[in-house]
Structures are given as structure tokens and as C-alpha cells.
Simulated assay, not measured.
Amino acid sequence: MPDTIDMVDKILADLKRVGGVEACAAASRDGLLIRGVLQKEQLAESIAAMSATMLGAAETATIEFGKGIPQRIIVETANGRLITTGAGPKALLIVIVNSETGLGLILLELEKAAMKLKELLP
């Protein structure tokens, strides 16, 4: 049976194959990098930490206003998007997407990957 890291790597590799996804990573809820598929590997730890902080801030804000826990955060720029979504109580998934790609398929595949990661890290 493959070990947990191999299974996380497979989830990320499958996510990376989705058209428009330039990079992806799995991180703990407190921002520690679990695994990442990024061209600039040295940035993976920073992206994990910053994404966890943004998702935590979004959760605090939406709960404060009585809107519940956000499903995801999407940061849009002229050059692309950074999407972070929760993957259970212990993890989150992060993808970086180019600006020309529609989000429908990416969000669908991101949700599937998040469910797999949630089952892997209950």
C-alpha cells in the first residue's frame, strides 16, 4: 500500500494535469507545507503559509458576519488566480491558475482533490 506522501503526490499530480493549473500544493491548516508542485520550489513554503493565513482571515470575517465558513478564497490578478480551499480539518489545497482559463473545471477538480485529501488526512 502506498504511503501517505505518495498518495498526496498523486492527488497533486492529478490536479496539476488540469488545464490552466500552473502550480498546486497541499498544506496544513496552520500553513506548513505538506507537498507542492511548483516551478519555484523555494516559494512553496511561503505560499502555503500565506494561503493558510488568508483562508483563516476569511473564515474569521465570514463567521463574524454570520455567513458561515467559506468554501474557498480566490485571489484574482491580471496575470492569474490563486485559489485556496479547505480539505478537512487538517489540510488545505492551493492552486495557481493562469488568467485565461475558466474556473468551472478547475473548481470541480479542486473539490474532488480536496475530498480525497480530507479522506487521506482525517
Results as ranks from 00 to 15, higher is better:
Ala58Met: 08
Arg29Gln: 08
Glu41Pro: 11
Ala48Gly: 06
Leu55Val: 08
Lys40Asn: 15
Gly56Pro: 04
Ala27Leu: 09
Gly56Leu: 11
Glu45Cys: 09
Ala52Leu: 09
Gly56Asp: 04
Arg35Val: 07
Gly31Leu: 06
Ser28Asp: 01
Thr53Tyr: 12
Ala58Tyr: 00
Val37Pro: 00
Leu38Cys: 11
Ala57Tyr: 06
Lys40Phe: 15
Ala57Leu: 14
Leu38Gln: 11
Leu32Tyr: 08
Gly56Ser: 14
Ala57Asp: 11
Leu33Tyr: 02
Ala44Tyr: 07
Ser51Gln: 01
Leu55Cys: 03
Arg35Asn: 06
Ala27Tyr: 02
Leu33Val: 03
Ala49Asn: 09
Ala49Met: 07
Ile47Leu: 15
Glu45Val: 12
Leu43Asn: 12
Ala48Val: 01
Gly56Asn: 11
Ile47Met: 13
Ser46His: 12
Glu45Gln: 15
Met54Leu: 12
Met54Ala: 15
Arg29Gly: 03
Arg35His: 08
Gly56His: 09
Ala27Trp: 02
Ala52Asp: 04
Leu43Asp: 13
Asp30Phe: 02
Ala48Met: 04
Leu38Gly: 07
Gly36Arg: 02
Ala49Arg: 08
Ala52Tyr: 05
Ala49His: 06
Ile47Cys: 10
Ser51Leu: 05
Glu45Gly: 12
Lys40Pro: 08
Gly36Trp: 03
Glu41Leu: 13
Gly31Glu: 04
Lys40Glu: 15
Ser51Ala: 10
Glu45Lys: 13
Arg29Ser: 03
Leu55Gly: 03
Ala57Trp: 00
Lys40Arg: 15
Gln39Arg: 15
Ala58His: 00
Gly56Ala: 13
Lys40Tyr: 13
Ser46Met: 13
Ile34Thr: 08
Leu32Gly: 00
Gly36Phe: 02
Asp30Pro: 00
Arg35Thr: 08
Gly56Phe: 09
Ile47Pro: 07
Thr53Trp: 08
Met50Glu: 09
Arg35Met: 06
Leu43Ile: 12
Met50Asp: 03
Ser51Val: 04
Gly56Trp: 06
Leu38Pro: 03
Ile47Glu: 03
Met54Ser: 12
Gly31Pro: 03
Met54Arg: 04
Leu32Ile: 06
